[in-house]
Amino acid sequence: MTETPLLELRGIDKRFGPVQVLHDVALTARAGEVTALVGDNGAGKSTLVKCIGGIHPVDAGEYLFEGRPVQVHSPRDAAALGVEIVYQDLALCDNLDIVQNMFLGREKRRGLVLDDATMEEMAAATLKSLSVRTVKSLRQKVSSLSGGQRQTVAIAKAVLWNSKLVVLDEPTAALGVAQTAQVLELVRRLADNGLAVVLISHNMNDVFAVADRIAALHLGRTAAQVRASDVTHAQVVELITAGRSGDLGLQDTSKGAAA
């Protein structure tokens, strides 16, 4: 792997008042790959995602995008780079239809008037590029969609803007078996289309189903970032719970905590 990763974080520190949430965290995400970000509750996954998305500025560390160091201070900066984050609560308007939700805040206009036809075409093209077949009409309201379909709309919204990195925060947490499979298929397709995908998940089955690499956080530190094919299910669970697994992970956690 000699090519530069799309996103590379090095030595990220983040503290909220007296609480240091992230210590010296590193994470890389490559185009065309799904990088799973795993860790127990409170390991710092959400904070790290918010740092990537520009919601929380980092206290220290390097944020490299396409090999160049960049400053991300706001969600707008992140969006300008091509970073889109799909949060767990999706943030869709139930009373609007699929097209309106996908373009919300960035509507296409012809003069004063909304250009509905163009937006519908673009939305249809995006969904088609993701091979989404589950949505019958683009003009149906989001309130009439199932959980999996909503997730699909939220992901399609993130992809619509020629984004390069899509971060998904537990996209399958609230879904049934069939819908989970569908969303995972969609996640895989995003990577196959050449995007870098960071997938946060608690579910090892999901992680091994789609991820190329796995980054494990343990108490705010990077335990390990490994290829999914190089580790077993049990090793990843150990990395999550203990921060180490044999040769992998934080070798001396007591020394690490003191440092």
Partner: peptide, 25 residues
């Protein structure tokens, strides 16, 4: 005006998997 057919939540699991590709295409 909006030709949206509201889907019954119960049958999502099946219809989503076997959904006809022509519909959105």
């Amino acid at each position: 005006e909006q030709p949206g057919k509201t889907e019954q939540p119960g049958k999502n699991g099946t219809s989503e998997r076997t959904g006809e590709p022509e519909k959105t295409a």
